[in-house]
Amino acid sequence: MTAHSPRILIIDDEPQIQRFLQPALAASGYEPVKAMTGREGLAEIARRAPDAVVLDLGLPDMDGKEVLTRARAFYDGPILILSARDRETEKIDALDLGADDYVEKPFGVGELLARLRVALRHKIERAGIKPVIERGGFKLDLTLRLVTRNGEAVRLSPKEYDLLALLAEGGGKVLTHKQLLTAVWGPAHAEDVQYLRVFIGQLRQKLEDDPATPRLILTESGVGYRFGVE
């Protein structure tokens, strides 16, 4: 943790949500800032340079995705989406537009704060990429392009490695199907989710202790995958 307490901007028009998020964030050592509209939110991001942003998609003055797009033009810190389950496609759109993660309403404060911690750590990791990622018996050396499991080298195909590296570098960030497909197979295959199903399955077979209850590569149903961080 850095010396000052991380500043978190909450953009949500529901005063009741602000009413419990503010004290909860303050109590866990963050400095909460609130914005009730999209416009106000963008101004706060520019002026206060928060360490992370929590953004509600349903804002009165402008669409949450619009806020996201505009913010990404000048802000590269983590942005967490608050979304209702009936806005599934909007959630995926938001992730594709550059959001780092999402939390579905209604949510417990503990879950939101956990996601926030991951996002913040990821931000720090991204600042100086760690060439080696370790998790339990799993070790990925990005410099050597080497994957070992309990000390033994694991043989991966180039596509499998690319996919794994992409997820691991995400550091727990949700990557949508589209993002993964575009990065590994190219834009022409952005909709071919079946590729992912096959390759993720293969990776889990090779890397997970129990492929049926994966801990390294986690599924976000209908959205994408993330790398298990803890």
């Binding site: 529901e14 009741q16 949500i17 009413r19 419990f20 998020l21 004290p23 909860a24 109590a27 866990s28 309403k105 209604p106 949510f107 417990g108 404060v109 503990g110």
Partner: peptide
């Protein structure tokens, strides 16, 4: 959301 969020805040903090 408000009920759940406030209640978990009270529980955790």
């Amino acid at each position: 959301s408000t009920v759940l969020g406030s209640a978990t805040t009270l529980l955790d903090y």
